[in-house]
Each structure stands twice: as structure tokens, then as C-alpha cells.
Design a protein around this nucleic acid. Structure first.
Lengths: 331, 331
DNA sequence: AGTGTTATTGCAACCGATCTCAGCAACCGA
DNA sequence: TCGGTTGCTGAGATCGGTTGCAATAACACT
């Protein structure tokens, strides 16, 4: 493969390099006849432009970073999946950055991406978004966040309506006859996680019942602890809402290992709508987030902002997915 | 941020551009005094080299593609996780490429990565590796495959000993008193998947029992179909080995929804050792693959090959993880 | 003192594009 | 026929580094 540069094509087509360049990136600036000829020659040689050289000169590339705390968490995995798709539909390449929740790493990734002239980035945070940190970067205003952002509306965001989601879960449970409904908090320390908890607290109180927070931790073991707490109670709730599907899995698993059955002994509803949930035992009833939409929208928002500087905050509607982990209360 | 190029630093440090370059990339070629001065100045300015410009000139970058069929599958997610870590420990950036099992996409990613001067790539395939396709690319000999490769020893591979894994599962089950052991085949059409199946067939036959293949499909529904098949049998096996954890999940879930309990009614063992398994209901007994090691080793192999052209084929030992989904046979 | 290393640094071409400017031909109206 | 557009293409600087080669300095040895 004798290095295929633009000059090679130019020579082969009998035109100047700049004409070849135009033929590709600004077709209307070249006589259509010439352009077709060039394209044909290029095709024949199997030539493609070097994205590196392009990025260097244009000062903007097509690499876009997706920063997630943990790709092992199916929520982020599903997000990554739809985002890769959305990305290369639009000619971008997704670059996966896993932070393990370390803000320093986030910073590191940002600088790296800046150096690669990434046109923008997507952040799915594990902790509340630090607006200041975001601004330290050239494309600080070109980041879309998959979470709510506090006190700064200059960053586009995509989220799902937490309150509405919790409401759906609560209504479903009420409908089944449950009145004592517990809550186990989520993995992430994000605004979203906070919002879900707040919604639970508020809505429960509003309906006249007392909130029962089984665990408010924010690590992976919240589910296990929540289950233990549940087992210790004299008068445990008949249903549990988990802040997200992973926690729900953990709760059910821990409960199961102590002989408590779902939904016979206690109903559990999750939050996320992971595909995995349908293969859980029992299949998980959950509040679905439109993850695929979130991915596409995130990229759209970023592009839109790049174009006209507009900053949107999209809030999507969740949806209840009733499967097998909920039923009427025991007794 | 007034564009920070190497010339800016050079001027600020009172030396020539090339000296700055050397100070960074070939320290021994610069008087240590000078180098330290340059580094200090650069530091003060907050300067970092442009990876793009570097890659363009050197014709080799630090971007390394990880090609997986589906990041949503926790096995690949865990792989991606350890690989990102292994990668940036060594100064590479992992670029996630999701193919959805489409070989055309794999090709596309390869060319893209070639254009980015990726020094090598890692492939975790979903279908048997097509050696010819691998060779069409400049770095065709610089790909590490997480699977076995047929009839071509020129590409480095990392795998786990399938036969040994199945043997561990079988021995565990035999030890518990099971004699009728079924098998549900896996998601991927890889050599590895094939090997596991073959091992099951061979080892079962050798022990004098008849193999019971509940499903040999290679899609996500193999688990569900396997479970149905199981339910239709007059004399079903007392234990099931699933070709991988995801399938095991599906089997248990499908079984559960039909009222069959694990491990009370039937034991199930998976293959992968996903972290998720410990949070399943019941916690999954499984053959663990050392995924973290695989990630690190894959990168090491690639680097080694880059350096001295050596091609290794590493086969790792699996390990049995006994959790709650297996017990003695019913009755 | 003269000559042969060796250690450092500067020079300038080069990697593969993009883009501004200028040149040139064809075309328009007066 | 001539100045003024317009359309298309070529020149050449530039993006931010790397690197072979030449130049200079410093040091060793006879």
C-alpha cells in the first residue's frame, strides 16, 4: 500500500492537490465534471482522506468522547451502545472514556479530547456535575450532560423526568394494593439519583404514608444493605422501589438468598428499563428510561449547539414496564 | 488559551522547536539542564503536545480500537473496562467500536483505525475469525484476538481453556451427585463457543452418559428455548450447563417464570464469571474467566508483537466459582 | 598545536490535508 | 471593444510536530 496521500491522487487525476481537497470537502466549488473525474480516480486508488491531517488543519475532528463512570453498569453500556450508533450515523467516532468515578480522570479525558480537537463531548456522570470543572475546557460549553446540572443553564442536558418516573412506580404499586412502600437509593451520587429520592419522599408524604428509606447509600452494596434492613424490620413494607435496576437486582438477590421471594413476599420495582431486566428472575417491573432516545438526542443537542449556540434542556418521559416482580401484597 | 504550539514553548524557552520536541520525546538526546528548563517552561505554560500532529508525522498513534460485537453484553463490558484501564496505564486511548455482529462494520472500523495510524487493535469477535479479512489491513498482523483463530498462527490470541472450564463445571456437578446434565449453547458463533460445546459433548460421552443439548442456537433466546425444551422433556436432566452467564440468566429466568426453581428443582452453572452473577437470583455458580488478565495480556501481546514481531497464543486457566445456583439433585 | 571523537543544538524538509489569494478564461452589458 | 463579474483552478503558507543532516562546541589524545 504505497502511502496514499492527496498528492498521489492529484497527480493521477492531473490536477492540483487543492482541487482534490475541494472535490471532497466542498463539492460545489469544483466543476462537476472535474469532481467526478477526481472521485473516480480516488475510488480506483482506494483513497480516503486522513482524518488526522484533516483534524490538524481544520482544528476540529470527528472523535467524540463519551465519559462514563463504569461501562460495566448496563445502563451506561446501553447508553454507549446507542451512542456509538448515533455517532457513526453522523460520521463521528465514539471514544469511550471510563472514569471509575474519579473526577481527576474526567479532567484528564477532557484535556486529551481537547488536544484531539473533539468538537464536543458527552458526559454521563457518577457524581453531581461540577460546572466549574466543565468550564476549564475550551469546549466547556460544548458538552452535553446526561444528568441535571445545578445552577447553570449554559450546558445542554438530557434527562428523564425523575418525579414522573417515581410517580408511575408508586401508582402502579398503589393500584396493586400496596400502602407500605420502601425505597432503596441508587448507585450514583448524581442529581438524578437525588431527584428520584426526593420525589419518593415527597410523593409518599403527600399520599399520607410515611417514607421508609431502607438504604440511602450510593454504592453497589446499597441493595444488599437495603435487603438486610428490610429483614430486620418488624413490620416491613410490602413493596420496594429501587433507585435503579442494578440496585433492584441486588435487592432481589439478597432477599432471595434469605428465603424472601419476589413478588410473593414482597414486590420490587426498579428504575432504568434495562434489557437485562427481562432476563432476571423474576423479570423486573421497572420504570423505563428511553435510553436510545437519550443517546441520539445528546448528539443532536451537541451538534445544534455547535451550529447556532443554542442550549437546550431536554426532559424525557419515562414509562412503566410491568413484568413479573410486582403483584398484590401478601396476606 | 492562545494556541499553545511547540513554537510558543520554544520561543519562551529560548531554544529551537526541535529541541523542545526532543526534550519531550527523546530526553536522552538533550542536555539534562536544557531539558529541565524546557520542561519547566512548558509546564508553566500548561503545554501538552498535540497527539494529532505527532501521529501524523510519526505515522503511529496511541489510539487503539477495541472491537466488540455488543457492549451491552456484560462480558464485553467487563473486558472493555479492564482494557481501558490497561490501555491508559500504558498511555493509549481505547476507542470502542461496536459492530453488532456485522462483519462489514468490523471492516469499516479497521480502515478507520488504519487511517488513524492505530499501532494495533484488539478484537473480541462474535463470529469465527476471518483470517483473510484480518490480513487486508496494514496492521493485519497487529491484531490481538480474544478467541481462538483457525488455521493461522500468525495472529496473537488470548483465550481461556474451554475444555478445562467445562470439565470444572462437570466435575462440580458430578460431585453433587448429578448424572443427567444438559447443555445450552451460547450467544456467539465463535471458536470459543464451539470449543465449549465440543468439550461438553466429548466429556459427557467419555463419562458414559448421553449428552443432552437443550439448545444449540447462538442468539440471545437460546436460554429461553433451552428452558422450554427442558420443560417439555419427560425425563429432564437435573442440572444444566450454560455456555455463558447471559444464557444462564435467561435459562433461570425462563425456568422461574414456569415455576421451576433453581437450585431446588434443577442446578444451573454458567460460564464467564460476570460480576453480575453474584447479584443474580440465585447467585450464579459459574466458570470464571480471568477477564481482567485477558485485557492486560491482550495489550501486552500487541506491544510485544510490535516490538519484536513475536506472536504468542496465551491460554488462561478458568476457575470454578461456586455460588447458589447449584446443589444436589432433587429427590 | 592538530586531529578525531562525542554531545548538543539548529535548520529545513516532511506528514497529509485546508484555505486564502491570485490568475485566468468565459461571459455580460454598454 | 473594454471594464466588471463569475467560475474554476493553481500556488503556497499553515496546522503542530519529527527527524536526518549539518554546524558548533567541548573534550581526549598524540
Amino acid at each position: 500500500m504505497p502511502d496514499l496521500s492527496i498528492d498521489v491522487v492529484a497527480k493521477a487525476a492531473g490536477v492540483h492537490r487543492s482541487t482534490v481537497s475541494r472535490a471532497f470537502s466542498r463539492p460545489e466549488a469544483v466543476k462537476s465534471e472535474t469532481r467526478e473525474h477526481i472521485l473516480r480516480v480516488a475510488e480506483g486508488l482506494g483513497y480516503t482522506m486522513s482524518p488526522l491531517a484533516q483534524a490538524l488543519r481544520r482544528k476540529t475532528s470527528t472523535i467524540i468522547p463519551l465519559i462514563v463512570p463504569d461501562i460495566t453498569n448496563p445502563f451506561f453500556a446501553e447508553l454507549a451502545k446507542t451512542m456509538t450508533q448515533a455517532a457513526d450515523e453522523r460520521g463521528y467516532q465514539l471514544m469511550l472514556c471510563v472514569t471509575n468515578g474519579d473526577p481527576a480522570k474526567t479532567d484528564g479525558y477532557f484535556t486529551a479530547m481537547q488536544a484531539m480537537y473533539a468538537p464536543f463531548g458527552i458526559v454521563a456522570p457518577s457524581t453531581k456535575v461540577d460546572t466549574e470543572a466543565l468550564k476549564r475546557f475550551a469546549f466547556g460549553h460544548k458538552v452535553v450532560v446526561i444528568d441535571r446540572v445545578e445552577g447553570d443553564t449554559s450546558v445542554p442536558t438530557v434527562t428523564v423526568d425523575s418525579r414522573r418516573g417515581i410517580m408511575l412506580a408508586l401508582e402502579h404499586l398503589h393500584g396493586l394494593g400496596h400502602t407500605q412502600i420502601g425505597y432503596v437509593s441508587g448507585i450514583a451520587g448524581t442529581h438524578t439519583a437525588q431527584d428520584r429520592m426526593d420525589a419518593y419522599l415527597e410523593l409518599t408524604a403527600r399520599s399520607g404514608s410515611t417514607p421508609i428509606v431502607l438504604d440511602s447509600g450510593s454504592d453497589l452494596d446499597a441493595g444488599t444493605r437495603g435487603a438486610e434492613h428490610f429483614l430486620d424490620m418488624d413490620n416491613p413494607p410490602t413493596a420496594i422501589i429501587a433507585a435503579n435496576d442494578m440496585v433492584a437486582f441486588a435487592v432481589i438477590s439478597a432477599l432471595g438468598s434469605r428465603g424472601v421471594r419476589v413478588p410473593e413476599d414482597v414486590s420490587v420495582v426498579g428504575f432504568d428499563g434495562l434489557a437485562l431486566g427481562s432476563r432476571f428472575n423474576p423479570a423486573l417491573t421497572t420504570v423505563r428510561q428511553p435510553i436510545a432516545d437519550m443517546g441520539h438526542i445528546a448528539i443532536e443537542l451537541a451538534e445544534k449547539q455547535n451550529l447556532d449556540g443554542s442550549v437546550d434542556h431536554i426532559v424525557l418521559e419515562p414509562e412503566l414496564l410491568v413484568r413479573a416482580s410486582t403483584s398484590g401484597p401478601r396476606k
